[in-house]
Design a protein around this nucleic acid. Structure first.
Lengths: 212, 212
DNA sequence: AGTGATACTTACAATCTTGTAAGTATCACG
DNA sequence: CGTGATACTTACAAGATTGTAAGTATCACT
């Protein structure tokens, strides 16, 4: 140890692979986006979060606009991927419990993982983007088939539009909670920690009740 | 007409009352906010929209921060005012129809008048604000009394939390639609003009169904 | 080891944005 | 009309922010 541990420590410039660097930059950007909101996105800030210089970001994304496009793209990709994975892992036991699980899962992916806030910001910003295909439509079809399968003996007839509306309901509610959840709950005096989960379960049962 | 109609036209500097000026500035700000999204708020842009110089805005609001606070304040004031007015005008005929009307009204105020997008942006930005009192809680109480009154003969018991959850559901859904409505509908192939209204009615009936 | 590719840095330029200072025009009121 | 208040303007300062240029350090590969 001839070298003093501090002072002369030359921290050996980190050199990530391009892919890794891009990922880290996107992570930091999304973090700022979902935590600090729309005004939190400044190249220099993101760079400083990562301990790099801001031109490093420009090196990988060309411009601020390019970074934004990349964030948009990845956010949607992840959203779809996570959501579809969650739905495919849907348990197959009691249909009511299963539906409850699916709803909770959707909330977890969108709200708890922070996707919804990012996407909401993008939508509010009018960022140009086109979700791949209508995968949600495909999900609706799968769900619809499932509903018909598990439909109770004297439940009212189930239209496809009804299923689609159910999906919209969950989607909208999820967005709404992600954005206004804390505010709204505080405003109606629902400040205990269990409230979000109770609401999610309540919603799931409200929806499923129509099938039986 | 010795003067040429164009060129020398000195358009007599407009001088509004302070109140009127503030209102116009806030209107323009909210317009940019809801149309162009979070990045649209630049003092110079707003000033140019109004045909004034940007220090005029600073003259009235002190700083950009002051302008933002004023926008927040007014947006919430309007939101509450419009919403409560709508609820108080609630028709008193058939309870189901009445509930449907209330839900549609809430959507109209929040979505169609553009309040939700502004508030959503504020929430995403982490703008500091404290909604007056818990007026939503008061609304919940009124609604709950009404539900108990019109409760069907063999409907399940109605808890207050159930009513609160119903309100949260409508509130969240409204936010969600305001932000992601067009995207989501397009993604599930619901692109006819009547779809938003059908969904709103469907939601209203879903909620009311539990009372009967 | 040597070499080319490239991730990354420092230094700098151009532009934009908020904010200030000081003066001008218009209104209210005597 | 005169006078004070103030809505508003032009000109400018200070700082932030994106982007460029050129060089340096590190990796992969021979």
């Amino acid at each position: 140890m001839s070298q003093a541990p501090e002072g002369a420590a030359k921290p050996k410039r980190a050199r990530r692979s391009a892919e890794e660097a891009r990922r880290e930059i996107l992570d930091a950007t999304e973090e700022r986006l979902s935590q600090l909101g729309p005004d939190g996105i400044r190249l220099q800030q993101i760079a400083s979060d990562l301990g790099v210089s801001h031109p490093a970001i420009l090196h990988h994304f060309g411009s601020r606009e390019g970074l934004m496009r990349a964030v948009v793209e990845r956010a949607f990709d992840r959203l779809e991927t996570d959501l579809i994975a969650a739905l495919q892992a849907m348990p197959t036991g009691d249909p009511v419990d299963a539906a409850v699980d699916v709803v909770k899962l959707a909330f977890r992916v969108l709200v708890d993982k922070g996707h919804a806030r990012v996407v909401a910001w993008l939508l509010l910003s009018g960022q140009p983007f086109a979700p791949k295909e209508n995968r949600l439509g495909q999900i609706a079809e799968v769900t619809h088939a499932r509903r018909l399968l598990f439909r109770g003996p004297d439940a009212p007839p189930i239209t496809f539009e009804d299923t689609v509306f159910q999906m919209l309901l969950v989607a909208f509610t999820t967005f709404g909670e992600a954005i206004a959840g804390p505010l709204m709950r505080a405003n109606v005096g629902l400040d205990d920690a269990g409230a979000p989960d109770r609401f999610r379960e309540w919603l799931a049962r409200l929806i499923v009740a129509r099938n039986h």
